[in-house]
């Protein structure tokens, strides 16, 4: 036994590697990391706009670079990241907004999540239609 008796000495546990502690935290980290894919895609697009401003040759060079196998692989990665990001954010969306009511009933979280997906699908289709119409 210690000669000096310490009756108190609060012990603070380390937070190192906290996100590996629970699958819920890992899912959260995946959601946050997938933001990098969204940012990456935005940077690629902005670079395209920059090249467009630098004349036809620069623009065509960028278009050619976009068709390389590495670029396609990168875009598939971005797409996957984007889907994960959308999915995880639509899941948490009901918690981030004030309660909504419809006909005296509280709108369930699942409806809010599904509405997010519906808007995404419609927006994607509209964008795709505009692109197809432009090309024609």
């Amino acid at each position: 036994m210690n000669t000096q008796v310490k009756s108190r000495g609060p012990y603070k546990r380390s937070m190192t590697g906290w996100w590996k502690r629970d699958p819920f935290f890992m899912k959260y980290m995946v959601r946050e990391m997938s933001a990098l894919a969204v940012a990456g895609y935005a940077i690629v697009l902005m670079f395209g706009v920059l090249r467009l401003s630098q004349g036809e040759a620069a623009w065509n060079g960028w278009l050619a670079a976009m068709k390389s196998p590495l670029s396609i692989l990168l875009h598939l990665t971005f797409l996957l990241g984007m889907v994960v990001h959308a999915k995880s954010w639509f899941e948490i969306m009901p918690k981030t907004m004030p309660a909504m009511h419809s006909g005296g009933q509280r709108v369930p979280g699942s409806t809010i999540t599904r509405t997010g997906w519906a808007v995404t699908v419609v927006a994607s289709l509209v964008t795709w239609a505009i692109a197809a119409w432009w090309k024609a």
Partner: peptide
């Protein structure tokens, strides 16, 4: 917005919603 607080609440409180709104 980790959201785990609302998952573990034994009383069905949704703190994540309170904080985020």
């Amino acid at each position: 917005a980790v959201g785990y607080c609302s998952e573990v609440c034994p009383k069905g409180v949704d703190p994540a919603n309170a904080v985020n709104q």
